[in-house]
Design a protein around this nucleic acid. Structure first.
Lengths: 346, 346
DNA sequence: CCGAGCGATGAGACCGTTAACATAACCGAC
DNA sequence: GTCGGTTATGTTAACGGTCTCATCGCTCGG
């Protein structure tokens, strides 16, 4: 008797509103040439029937769905996870859905496979949140991505594709200049793994800022993003008397470093100032609260989607490949302060 | 001239293989009644043309797409993020895509909206990784979720829906029994925010284990998952002489607690043993490495998808609502050890 | 030896939407 | 007043699959 009322389709709405289904379609897609009165009548019917256009039918008929594909590598790290969230938020606001494929490895096959999955879904565009560093991965990407609008969320240019990212060099510069302005002679750097372009960008910014201020460039310590590597570096630095400021490539490393310094009775910021990168939620609750560089991932997501939508909806095919950079912000907290004594006096 | 070779469709494959499009469809769906020889011939053509069935067309024709919708709340927390990853992995293996919608709030409107988005995409099923605690949210969910297969990833039963989760009570029990077996008189507990059913489950397990062993149940400290709240609790506990073991509801809180104890010269594990929950990547690199309860999120993802697939593909509508529980594992590390002296002697 | 039953395949309708084209009404200009 | 050009709407054909049903050989039992 009480049949499950099959969800309304466009013709149901049309019948109820007394128009053709095509007019309903026009209303749903904000086509300009619909009389306001008709528009309202249709919308009333839409609400009355709780009509939602079927995304599959739309995608099929239009050739592309309102779906953005996202390829994500290491989606548990803070940066990638935050970027994914940012893209999803922006997409949702723009009326797009987000289909995610994670990448276990970065080889040719995995990348191709992931892209195939997404294109099979007729996604309107693809956002790549993965370092396409290996030439083979990039090549795999390029062949497929030539056909579908794509944006790479990476600070380095990749294979002629548009990119969006936080300006890593600028962020590092902010950190270093902040420390120098406090009176530190120079700044040490604990970098991330050099296979990541983010790590390379931060190291470059650090070096550039020091050189611009004509300061000595200390040797670089290399970590792997983990607190453990920060801890190890901290033990090493605690033994030196010529270190008054350290810039860590991410907050997790800074966390480990803080612990090591604390164990060795090196006071922060009195003896050594520390600055991190990321502004993870924990940072302002560390002891001392960590000065760090905040990245606006929501903005990255918005820009990312903006670029995609331009490519998708844009008519002019000759738009130049864009490389948007989002400006990071320095969050000054207690872990950085002016040096209380000259480094040499230790 | 060299036209972009529009990607192959099923009729192209059929023509090349010398069969009807329907036979190709059968091959793509592993229909049993296709001669092996025909099957091979079709597959050869499929590979030759690099044919991928269009997901939109499939979804439209079949009434359901090979897409799993995931609703996620707070996708930056370790548990939710890991669960999302687990579901995506399992879905990918099963040949399904994953469409994600994040939930900014947990009110009626947001939940309805998110579900509408997913059902408009004709998703085959929905996995909810969000606490549907509020009655209104649950109600919103129920009305829609009655129509589409759904699984809730939550340790508490919700509105007659199937659930999958790590057994929180069991995990807490493992932690407490481990500490008791080392010789501790009793175990203190720093819980998570009681609005989370996970936090409640862990607190319940802790209490049950103590009562089963007929031990005194100390007052509960309450945190908010953050390291800061762990730090605060640590300062409080460091001042007491009757604490020899603490079970923290998550690793982030344990991290803060360890720091506080270290500052107060309370040794871990000599003076106080600490056990956490989650096994975040940092845990084994803390000093001391943290004993904790590991949750197998990949398994949760697999079970989640398994349940969904049963609901989707299953024919018998009378399957009982299932509540799968994944067993957690205790990871014993250096932060827990036998009490070196009786608690009373401090 | 013949028809029931099954295995393998094919033909055409159909899913719900958008795109292309057609049509009717209306506008101002000559 | 009639004609080109909008504007608002309707009609019909895709889009690329799956599903239902029909067809054609076979095999096998009586």
């Amino acid at each position: 008797m009480s049949q499950q009322p099959r969800s309304a389709v466009i013709r149901d709405v049309a019948r109820l509103a007394g128009v053709s289904h095509q007019t309903v379609s026009r209303v749903m897609n904000n086509h300009p040439s619909v009389r306001p009165e008709t528009h309202d009548r249709v919308m009333k019917a839409v609400h009355q029937l709780n009509f939602r256009p079927n995304a599959n039918a739309r995608g099929l008929a239009a050739g592309r769905s309102r779906l953005i594909g996202v390829i994500s590598h290491e989606p548990l790290l803070f940066g990638p996870a935050s970027t994914l969230l940012g893209v999803e938020r922006a997409a949702r606001t723009a009326g797009y859905g987000v289909s995610v494929v994670t990448l276990e490895q970065l080889d040719h096959h995995s990348v191709t496979e992931a892209l195939d999955r997404l294109t099979a879904q007729a996604v309107a565009g693809v956002a790549v949140i993965a370092p396409l560093l290996s030439a083979t991965a990039a090549a795999a990407a390029q062949s497929v991505l030539a056909a579908v609008p794509a944006v790479v969320v990476e600070p380095d240019a990749v294979a002629d594709l548009p990119t969006v990212a936080v300006d890593q060099v600028e962020g590092a510069r902010l950190a270093v200049e902040h420390l120098l302005s406090l009176g530190h002679e120079t700044v040490w750097h604990l970098s991330g793994p050099p296979t990541w372009s983010q790590a390379r960008g931060r190291a470059d910014g650090w070096r550039q800022a020091l050189e611009a201020a004509q300061r000595a460039v200390p040797p670089t310590l290399t970590g792997d993003w983990s607190p453990r590597s920060g801890y190890d570096a901290g033990l090493e630095l605690a033994g030196r008397s010529d270190v008054s400021a350290v810039f860590c490539a991410n907050d997790h490393q800074a966390l480990g470093l803080l612990r090591a310094l604390h164990e060795r009775r090196v006071r922060v910021p009195e003896d050594i100032s520390v600055v991190g990168f990321d502004d993870i939620p924990e940072s302002r609750f560390l002891s001392p609260p960590l000065t760090t560089v905040r990245q606006d991932f929501d903005e990255v997501g918005r820009r990312c989607l903006g670029t995609l939508l331009e490519l998708i909806e844009g008519d002019e095919p000759a738009a130049p490949v864009s490389h948007l950079r989002v400006r990071p912000t320095l969050m000054v907290r207690a872990s950085s302060d002016r040096p209380s004594r000259l480094a040499v006096s230790r």
